[in-house]
Design a protein around this nucleic acid. Sequence first.
DNA 1: TGGTTATTTGGCTATACTGCCAACAATATG
DNA 2: CATATTGTTGGCAGTATAGCCAAATAACCA
Lengths: 99, 99
Amino acid sequence: MLNDLNYKRRAQVLRALGHPSRLAMVEALLQGEKCVCDLHDLVGSDMSTVSKHLSVLRNAGLVDDRKEGLKVYYRLRVPCVAKFFECVDEVLGMGSGQR
Amino acid sequence: MLNDLNYKRRAQVLRALGHPSRLAMVEALLQGEKCVCDLHDLVGSDMSTVSKHLSVLRNAGLVDDRKEGLKVYYRLRVPCVAKFFECVDEVLGMGSGQR
DNA sequence: TGGTTATTTGGCTATACTGCCAACAATATG
DNA sequence: CATATTGTTGGCAGTATAGCCAAATAACCA
């Protein structure tokens, strides 16, 4: 298939966004840097789970982190994902077409 | 967590895009309707696999289908996904941050 | 140093996804 | 009707993902 590696990388980025908790975290990060503890409060699952979700986002290239004292702050690397939310909601707004 | 169902639905849409073959198919569909056979030629995997990928996209609300004679034609329901490709490539363009 | 807080990592089980094959359904054509 | 063509569905084996706990790391403070 045409340029397989490129599609794999792109898919990795989108798959990283394909989880409710990670989506919620990314949306929160649109407003600015958050520490893991903030995101932990947001999504409610175990801290270790949150940490693993964040590493999925990091490996996909979507976020970056920075340590300050005990806390680790994550930030979005790419503002354009904001548009994803609008478009995804447009998809959902038409009725999902589920069969 | 805040409005769990909404995040689940959104995640479903993004996860549907999170596969190399499905991405390639969606990109092809940006140029217009294609039959399953066209997409089969494009991605190269078994027809049944292609069909299942298409049903993932359909269940996510991303595509619609139409039967004409023996052939089934799929089309994108939402043009805005075109922008996803630009943004995703922007993510990749910065170096993926893989650790 | 010893203790506390914030986060990551390892390991495990449960669940979901992928991709192939075989079987089935629907439509066209001889 | 028999047969070919186009897709879909069921089922299975292999792989990946999710989420929890426990243990490890790192930075801070007494």
